[in-house]
């Protein structure tokens, strides 16, 4: 089973991102689960969401403590949340940042780091506002590239069904992010 944890802030679309990813894997015939951290959501506050993907039926109903992948939607979260907590050995962190993979590796120490400037991509595709861009669909596109566990086509199709507003621009953001994601391994 692949377990993915999303870190974002209320309003950034982490919960929707977890569902888009689940929907993409579901299109590829996998069993999936997606859920928010079981809390009370507030705009701007740190939000956690989860996606589980498996070849066989998923029976475990508990939260994810040891993710294979972590997706961080906002670098400002790094000072507030221990995003790599429980990350499996060899696990990958995908982060929305202007920084390089080396710089993120310096900060987080993760062995596998993927970086993408999802904020710039979201603004370019007119998703949200410049102050509060909606980066979730770009990040799921980037995740397809960084992880290889879902196809970009599936992500694009899933956005079509899961995102009611501006699906085309969101799909373009996912494609742009897929193209510009940089993945590096450190050992």
């Amino acid at each position: 089973m692949m377990e993915i944890r999303f870190h974002g802030r209320g309003g950034q679309g982490a919960v929707v991102a977890s569902r888009i990813l689940a929907a993409a894997a579901f299109l590829e015939g996998k069993d999936v689960q997606a859920f928010p951290f079981f809390g009370v959501e507030r705009r701007g506050a740190p939000v956690t969401a989860f996606t589980k993907i498996d070849e066989k039926p998923i029976r475990i109903k508990s939260e994810i403590d040891e993710p294979d992948y972590v997706i961080v939607m906002d670098t400002a979260l790094l000072s507030a949340v221990d995003v790599t907590q429980g990350l499996k050995k060899g696990g990958l962190v995908l982060i929305n940042t202007e920084k390089s993979a080396e710089e993120i590796h310096e900060i987080l120490g993760a062995e596998k780091v993927a970086v993408v400037d999802a904020t710039e991509i979201a603004i370019r595709n007119q998703l949200g506002t410049k102050v509060q861009p909606i980066v979730n669909t770009a990040l799921v596109g980037a995740f397809a590239r960084a992880s290889g566990i879902v196809k970009l086509d599936s992500v694009v199709q899933a956005i079509g069904s899961e995102v009611p507003r501006n699906p085309e621009r969101n799909q373009q953001a996912a494609r742009d992010a897929y193209e510009s994601t940089v993945v590096m391994e450190f050992s």
């Binding site: 579901f26 999936v32 689960q33 997606a34 859920f35 928010p36 079981f38 109903k61």
Partner: peptide, 10 residues
């Protein structure tokens, strides 16, 4: 609550 009510499954 949450384990099913807010969790997406096929």
């Amino acid at each position: 609550a949450f384990y099913l009510s807010h969790t997406v499954e096929p």
